[in-house]
Computed example of a mutant assay.
Amino acid sequence: MRDDSDDPAALSLRDDRTVGAPVLAALRSADDTAGFGVDIAATLAWAVSVGRARAVERDLVDDWELLASVAARDVTAARILEPHLDALDILDQARRDGHDIELDRVGAGPASSWGVFAAEGAGVRLEAHERRDGWTLTGTKPWCSLAAHVSHALVTAWAGDTRRLFAVDLRADGVSPRPGPWHARGLASVVSAPVDFAAAPAATVGDPGWYLRRTGFARGGVGVAACWWGGAAALRAPLRAAAQRSGADQLSRVHLARVDTALWAARLALADAARSLDAPAPPDPALTAARVRTLVAQAAETALHEADHALGPLPLVADEEHARRAADLQLYLRQHHAERDLARIGGDLADGRGAW
C-alpha cells in the first residue's frame, strides 16, 4: 500500500489513503514499458495487459484510482487506457444483462485493443443494416480516437431512428480510418478523426437504445473525470516545490492552496460518487455524473490556471514533461462541455430532480 501524498502517481480515493495492489502493479508495469505514453503501440499493449489483469469482482473506486494514477503518471497513457477499459466494461455489462455478442464475427478476443466511438457530428451519419448474413455498417463516424491503432471498437450507429451499439473490426475490409485533420498540440499522438465504413461487418452489443440507457453509462463518464483529476493532481508537485524555494513569497503559497483545495474537493466528489454509483439502485446516476464531471473539470482548470500564474512560461518551454501534461490535459478537458453541461444540470433541477 502507498500513501498518495508520498507519490503523486499513486492516487487514493479511500478514507485510509491507501492504494490497492492492482494500481501499484499497473504503475510498475508502466515503468517497465519503453516509450510509455509516447509509443502508441507499446502503450496500447500495456493497456491490454492491464485490462486482462483486472479482477472480475472489484469496487468502482478501484477503477477510478487506476485511471487517476495512470493520468498522474502520463495523461496520454490514461487517454489510451480509459476507452479500452470502458469497452471491456460495456461488453461485460451486456453479457450480464443477457445479451449475446458474436465477437467471433468481428475477430475479437482477449488480445484485442478497443476504442469507444459514440460521438455524432453535423453532416455525417453512420447507419446499420441487417442482412441475411448479419449486420453491416455504412457511413462516417466522427471523432474516432486511435482508430488507426486499436484493433476493435464499440461504435454507435443508426438503425432506423434508434441508435444501437455495435462491435467492429477496424482492420476489416470496408473500414477506412482517416489520418486527420488533427493539428492538436495536446494529445498529439491520440488522433481523433473520422472513420469511413462501407458495408463493414458488425456484431450487435445490446438491443436498440441499450447503450445510452444502461446503468453503467454514468459510471463511464465519471471514469473520464478521474483521468482529468489525476492529470491535474500531478501539478501539485511543481507548485509545492515553488512554494518551498528559498525566498518564495506568500503568493506561491496562495497558488498552491488554491490548487490543493480545488483538487481535494474534486477528490471528495469522486469518492462519494464511487460509493453512490456502486449501490444497487443509485439515485439520479446521470445527474451525479454530470455534477462530478463539472466539479472535477473546474478543479483541473483551476490547477492549469494557477500553475501558469505561479510558474510562468519557463516550464511550458523548458520542461518537456510539464509542457506535454499541460497541453494534453487542456485538450482532454474539452470532453467536458462546460456551460452546456451546466445547463443540463440546471434543467434537471428546474424539473424537480436532484434534491439534496
Rank of each mutant, 00 (worst) to 15 (best):
A153I: 00
A128T: 01
A200Y: 00
F197L: 01
W143L: 13
L170G: 06
A226W: 05
R178G: 04
P179V: 07
E120Y: 12
A153K: 01
S151Q: 08
L170M: 15
S151T: 11
T136A: 13
R125T: 04
V205R: 05
R219I: 14
S192L: 11
V195L: 02
A108N: 14
L170T: 05
W143M: 14
W210D: 12
V222H: 14
P110V: 14
R164Q: 10
A198V: 03
P208V: 06
W158I: 10
R163L: 07
R185T: 10
A122M: 10
S112Y: 14
S189W: 07
P177E: 03
R214C: 10
H183F: 08
G223W: 06
R171N: 01
A167D: 06
H152R: 11
A172L: 09
A200Q: 01
A226D: 13
H152C: 04
V175W: 00
W182I: 15
A202W: 00
L170V: 03
P177Q: 12
R125G: 08
R131G: 15
D173K: 02
G223E: 13
A118T: 08
D173I: 01
G139E: 13
L212F: 15
A200I: 00
F117Q: 10
D161W: 04
P194I: 05
L137G: 08
G186M: 06
A225V: 06
A184F: 05
A172Y: 02
D207A: 07
F166P: 00
T162Y: 01
A225N: 09
L212M: 07
K141I: 12
P208S: 12
G139N: 13
G107Y: 02
T138L: 09
D173F: 01
E127Y: 00
V175C: 00
S112T: 12
W182G: 05
L126N: 05
P179W: 10
A122Y: 09
S192R: 04
A128G: 13
G174Y: 00
A167T: 04
T140M: 06
W210V: 06
G209K: 04
W210M: 09
A203F: 01
F217C: 08
R164L: 05
A167V: 08
G220A: 07
P194N: 09
A153H: 00
L187P: 07
S151F: 08
A108P: 13
A200D: 01
R163C: 04
L146A: 10
L187Y: 14
L170H: 04
A193S: 07
G115F: 11
P208T: 05
R125S: 13
P179D: 13
D169M: 09
P177L: 04
L146D: 08
D196W: 03
D207R: 06
G139R: 09
V222N: 10
V150N: 04
A111Y: 07
G174E: 02
R131W: 10
A153D: 01
P179I: 06
V150E: 05
F117C: 08
A157G: 11
S189M: 15
A200E: 00
